[in-house]
Structure formats: structure tokens, C-alpha cells
Nucleic acid binder design. Structure first.
Lengths: 156, 156
DNA sequence: TATTGTTATACTCTATAACTATA
DNA sequence: TATAGTTATAGAGTATAACAATA
């Protein structure tokens, strides 16, 4: 396999033999691609993955508390505060005091929040269609099923 | 579906209908599990994902430069410096000047580095066997193939 | 006592600009 | 001028301790 005499900026030909054996490595590389594309997809809406996920969960679960949302997002409560702050400052959600438990807030999306949700979700649907275009429906379902199985092995 | 009268700390029953439609969401959740477990797996060796990956690539590609390693790891050159610093400080690798190009370093693992590599890789093999125990070989191969396909869609 | 939301803080990972020494 | 490695720095994301208000 002869290389051209004038090497194109010292061609690199890295050996990945060890890393390629690991599923986790492939997951990281693939997820990096998805995340980078999703970040670009959400940028026109001024949303990050975290603010997007929070907005989606609040729209789908009106009235949930910050503790519940943090648990659903698998992040610590302190880290959720700034996320909810941002959504509230942009009038996408409201924090309503719960009469039955005055420590907690009931989070609810505003009309503007629901409208942004609709637009952002549509954009993410298009982003997924683009990124997973080469996978037929069966393969995609199998991928989701395998990923869910991995997640269920968490406590093993 | 009646709930018990005495609710166990206000049982949460979050609606994930929107997020569950997205492959990327399942990838993130699964990868979080894998990453958390891998972090614990590498802790006894005083390695993080980045130092582990760098060590593996240096062992498998003796003499490669920091630029090549950064490209292989998909990180910026400045961020690699501290990683290589740490591996060198622990005498796991050496930075040799390249006579032909005195700007570059040729990275090489020491004997101690190759020994730690052997132990860490064995631990990661066990970690993967544990995490992906519920997936048969065919499913695992299909998962890797699907993830590789996603990665190849990067420039679409 | 325990829990909700909060502040402060720290650590990791990531990204960019600008420098040095070589080429 | 361009590249390899470096420094400094700033931004995300994440994790823990400790506090006020409320239960």
C-alpha cells in the first residue's frame, strides 16, 4: 500500500484496536455527534439540551416540582435552579406556590413556553430524521431497545 | 389503577411521552449509566476516561504526536496538554523530542504505563461484560453497527 | 427531624486566543 | 507563513455542604 511521495501533511493512520472492542467507546463517539448536532438544532430557539429537556418535561407534566424535575432529569437540585431561573426569566414557565405545601413550586409552561416547545420539538424531530436516516425503523427500534436494556442494568 | 391511600412520599409518575420518542434521549440516558460505571471502574487505577483513553491510544500507537492524539481523541490540543502532563508525571509515558521535527513530541508508554494499561483494560472488559450482560453477541454487534452508522452521518 | 428551594463552591470537560520555538 | 506545543481564560455541566422556610 504505497503512500504518495509528497505526503499530505503527514497522513495519520491511528490504530484503534483496543478502543474499538468496547461498546461504551462507540456510544460516546456516536453520542458526541448527536449532541453536537442537537446543540446546533436548538441554538435558533436559544435553548440548550438542559433547558430544552426541562421545558419538555414541564409541558408534559404541568405542576411538577423542582425536586421531581431534577429527579426526572437525573441532575442535582442545585443545578436545576439556574435552569428554571432562565426559563422563568424568559417567561416560558411560571413558578406557582403550592398551597398544600408552601415549600414547593408548581412549575407550569406559559403559552409562549408551549409555543416554543412545539417549534423546538418539531426541529428535534427533523434533526433525528436527518441523523438516523440510514437506520430503518426496525434497526432504530432495536437500538432503542438495546439502549433501554443497558440503562436497566444500572444497579447490577 | 388505584394508588395506596397513604402515599409513599408523594409518588412520582413522570410523563416522558415526548422525550421517549427520541433516539438521542435514550442514547444520553444509556451513556450516562455507562460513563458513571466506567468512572468507578477506572478509579482504582487513578484514571479518568480521558487519561485512560490517552494511555490506550499511546500504547497502541507508540511515537504519535500530541496533535495526532488530540485529533484521535476529538479534543482540542490545549486540553490534551494537562492529560499528557499527568501521564508523564506519573511515569506512565515519556515525551521524546522528534529529531526530524524538533517542535513535536513522540509519545511512548513506559513499562509502568503498559502494565497499568493491561490492568485497566482488563477491568474495563469486565465492566462491559457486566453492563451489557443482557445483550447477546448479535444484539451487541448490531448496536455497535448502528452507532457507527450514526457517527458516519456526521457530515450529512 | 425531614424536605424544598437556594447559595456558594469546586471540579471536570470543553473551547478560543495568543504566545514560543521551531519548520 | 505555518505548525507543535503551551499558557491563560472562560464557559458549560456536575457534585457536595450548608442555609432559610416550611412541613
Amino acid at each position: 500500500m504505497p503512500k504518495p511521495d509528497t505526503q499530505p501533511a503527514r497522513s495519520i493512520d491511528i490504530n484503534y484496536q483496543t478502543l474499538n472492542r468496547f461498546v461504551g467507546y462507540h456510544m460516546k463517539r456516536a453520542f458526541n455527534v448527536v449532541q453536537a448536532d442537537l446543540t446546533q438544532t436548538l441554538k435558533p430557539f436559544d435553548l440548550r439540551m438542559l433547558t430544552y429537556t426541562a421545558l419538555v418535561l414541564i409541558v408534559d407534566n404541568p405542576g411538577l416540582s423542582q425536586s421531581q424535575l431534577a429527579a426526572a432529569m437525573d441532575i442535582e437540585r442545585p443545578n436545576l435552579v439556574v435552569i428554571v431561573d432562565e426559563l422563568e426569566r424568559r417567561d416560558l414557565i411560571v413558578r406557582n406556590r403550592v398551597p398544600a405545601d408552601r415549600r414547593a413550586y408548581a412549575l407550569k409552561a406559559t403559552l409562549a413556553g408551549r409555543r416554543l416547545y412545539e417549534k423546538a420539538v418539531a426541529a428535534v424531530v427533523a434533526h433525528e430524521a436527518r441523523l438516523f436516516a440510514n437506520l430503518d425503523t426496525d434497526t432504530r427500534d432495536a437500538l432503542i431497545k438495546a439502549l433501554s436494556t443497558v440503562r436497566r442494568n444500572q444497579n447490577t
